[in-house]
Amino acid sequence: MLKVTSLCRNFGGLPALSEVSFSLQRGRVTALIGPNGAGKSTMINCITGVDQPDAGRVEYLGEEITGMPAYRVAHLGIARTFQNLRLFPRLSVLDNVLCGLTVQGGKSMFGALIRPPQVRNRERRLRLKAMSALDRFGLTDLADWPVDVLAYGDRKRVELARAIVSEPSLILLDEPVAGLNHEETALVGHEIRALRAQGYTLLLVEHDMDLVMGVSDHVVVLDGGRCIASGTPDEVRQNPLVLEAYLGRTAVMA
């Protein structure tokens, strides 16, 4: 479904990604793991047009999307979350999630000014959709709250709700459970499994190995901007290169 070929990205001469290739299968959950600074977030940014790769190719459904502006990538049905939350602080929880429906929200400024019945009905439909996404993440009671007063865990879930509300064909999650407590991690883990059961295609960047090993069909390991291993969770777990990359950094892999 998504194919990344020999992707390179340098920051001031230092390679954050060098010659990374992998692909995502439709309906599968692929995990992208690796130590901090391995280039995982950079990879997501390069796929979604937030950052431009220096070389290599990104193909989505057979079409090249390398270097395409982020808003056009979004219109192809690719949604994402950010490692360091990027919510709209002054908007309410509901409005934040409604922003996730931009692609379906109509582009005509004239229509928006005049607000004919079609626009009115569309707004009503979008609201219902957003409310059901809030419900899914247990945020219904917080709908009218400004996001900047929410606890970190709640905000993290608002961002997830915003990413999935449009029913995107590909979802890229950058560390969705980092900083969450046990309960919240369980809830999000449960939702990721539910998304997978519904047939969504996901790329999951995560440090929580229980989650990664539990939900992924395929694991890609980055270290220092290079892809050092890939395969099923079991294969990766036993790969000596991976063990070495993680040695002393985390014991979960053992």
Binding site: G49, Y71, R86, F88, L91, L98
Partner: peptide, 16 residues
């Protein structure tokens, strides 16, 4: 809402 998003966080707005 797209405009409000743009005022809040341009990168996030574009990604949406």
């Amino acid at each position: 809402r797209g405009l409000a998003a743009l005022a809040g966080d341009e990168v996030a707005a574009r990604s949406l």
